[in-house]
Amino acid sequence: MPNLVRRSCGAADGSADMIDIDNLVLSYPSSTKPALDHVSLSIPEGQLVALVGASGSGKTTLLKTINRLNDPQSGTISLDGEDVSAIPGPLLRRRIGYAFQGIGLFPHMSVAENIGITPQLLGWSKPDIAARVRELLALVDLPADFAARTPAMLSGGQQQRVGVARALAARPKIMLMDEPFGALDPLTRDALGQSYRALHERLGLTTIMVTHDVQEAVLLADRIVVMEAGRIVADGTPRELMSEKAEPRVMELMSVPMRQAERVQAILSGAAHV
């Protein structure tokens, strides 16, 4: 895997970045503490970045600020060099893929209608949409005859595949994913994570994925950004964050998967000796 990680600081090396976040501040009316406290982050094209951190650390808020589901009090976001505050929210979101834990498939529409919704909003022709739906069903490994089904007829994993297909339908360059596989069983979750990683490579996407599962982040991401209380407290490759140079708190967090693996190993070998 090519090392794409650059710890850039905002606009300094500007145009090469797909996503450029500069000095975001956002607080919710209900809270005195800011949800985002001067956050800056630059992500080059093609990177898969995992945002990790405890609940309430600001991961989801940051993600939703990128596609303007939230608007910040100050700071700027540029996507491919274009300031998002100049683009109306709905138009911006038709250019960005968005998948989340709730999935939110429209229960009154067929799978095909769900997948084709953003192209339809963009005014694609019916044959183009139909062709794209067939293409996407294949891409997310679902049979073509699922097109006519309703979401209620699908399993959780199948629904999330449709959710990812829907997010990809209008050929976005950027994907925002909020715990997309969080509610799935471990097997499905692992399989979907790997298929998504493959899609990310194949389509040349730039992805930000929020997860609280460090193991998932380590396995899928090129780069991990750790958030705490609205700030970025660590940013690097999985290997960097797990090295001894990292802060103790971060290292402790990052070493959870390793420690778990060791315990599993110990239990299994212990059992073998009995």
Partner: peptide, 15 residues
Amino acid sequence: VDKAAVEAAKGVGMT
């Protein structure tokens, strides 16, 4: 109405 469906409607770019 299911909050997820409303969020998805926004997310796919509906006004």
